[in-house]
Simulated scan of single mutants.
Amino acid sequence: MAADPAYKILKHLKYKGPGHASLRVGYYNSAKDKGFGWNKLKKKHNITKYGAVEYVAQSPNRDHIGGQSYREIAYAGKYKCRNGVCKLVKQYKVQLTVNEKKLRDGQDKGVITMYCTGVLKCPKWVSTTLAKLNRRSAASTDEQYQRSYRPLAPSTRTLTATAVPAEKAAPAHKPSLNTPVSSGAAE
């Protein structure tokens, strides 16, 4: 009998809990609002980068939520900048749920869901920001994006990096409690 393709592991994520967190293909059925794994993250919550999931999986904010399930929390924010000062205009608390139950393949069940608190679908910039540190908008040099394991400051100074498209920008500053994200393949 063939194995269920939903349980295929796409990536072993670095994880704050024991071992690694398995990111499985999963599934999402919108009619029943059921699912887990990568397909649920993408289809229901608009999480589109493996690196975003891995960043949150490494959060020091780890709470037991019942049984063998744990929740990690991180934050993504968008700043508008003017005259060298940036003001926070939008911040999302991003929650990741991981189940550590061991399955027949000897791996943990892994990532169940990840979402932005308060909205069904995260804006696209949330995934990009969590996956890569300190980005400015490609369309405008007056925007800056930050990620953190703590709520973001209401204002900050602008980065000195040249504005480049968010997908190609190099980190210019590393706020405290940020951990480097591995360059994951298959994003």
Rank of each mutant, 00 (worst) to 15 (best):
Met1Leu: 06
Asp4His: 08
Asp4Met: 06
Ala6Cys: 07
Tyr7Arg: 14
Leu10Cys: 02
Leu10Asn: 04
Lys11Glu: 13
His12Ser: 12
Lys16Asn: 11
Pro18Tyr: 06
Arg24Trp: 01
Arg24Cys: 00
Ala31Trp: 05
Ala31Val: 09
Asp33Trp: 03
Gly37Lys: 04
Gly37Val: 11
Trp38Tyr: 04
Trp38Lys: 02
Lys42Gly: 01
His45Lys: 08
Asn46Arg: 13
Lys49His: 07
Gly51Leu: 10
Ala52Asn: 07
Glu54His: 04
Val56Asn: 03
Ser59Tyr: 03
Ser59Pro: 03
Pro60Asp: 12
Arg62Tyr: 04
His64Trp: 13
Gly67Gln: 10
Gln68Val: 04
Arg71Ala: 06
Glu72Ile: 09
Ala74Pro: 00
Tyr75Glu: 07
Gly77Pro: 01
Lys78Pro: 11
Lys78Val: 07
Lys78Met: 08
Lys80Val: 09
Arg82Cys: 00
Arg82Leu: 06
Gly84Ser: 05
Val85Gln: 13
Val89Gln: 14
Gln91Gly: 02
Gln91Ser: 10
Gln91His: 05
Tyr92Asn: 05
Val94Tyr: 01
Thr97Ser: 04
Val98Tyr: 00
Asn99Val: 01
Lys102Pro: 09
Lys102Gln: 14
Lys102Ile: 15
Asp108Phe: 00
Asp108Pro: 11
Asp108Gly: 09
Gly110Cys: 04
Gly110Met: 08
Gly118Ser: 09
Val119Cys: 04
Leu120Glu: 14
Cys122Val: 10
Cys122Ala: 08
Cys122Lys: 04
Lys124Ile: 07
Trp125Asn: 06
Val126Ile: 11
Ser127Tyr: 04
Thr128Ile: 13
Leu130Trp: 02
Asn134Gly: 12
Asn134Ile: 10
Arg135Ser: 07
Ala139Asn: 14
Glu143Val: 06
Gln144Trp: 08
Gln146Thr: 08
Arg147Ala: 02
Arg147Gln: 10
Pro151Phe: 03
Leu152Cys: 08
Ala153Thr: 13
Ala153His: 11
Pro154Lys: 13
Ser155Gly: 01
Thr156Val: 15
Thr156Leu: 13
Thr158Lys: 13
Ala161Lys: 14
Thr162Cys: 05
Ala163Leu: 05
Ala166Met: 12
His173Ser: 11
Lys174Tyr: 03
Lys174Val: 06
Pro180Asp: 12
Ser183Cys: 07
Gly184Tyr: 15
Glu187Lys: 07
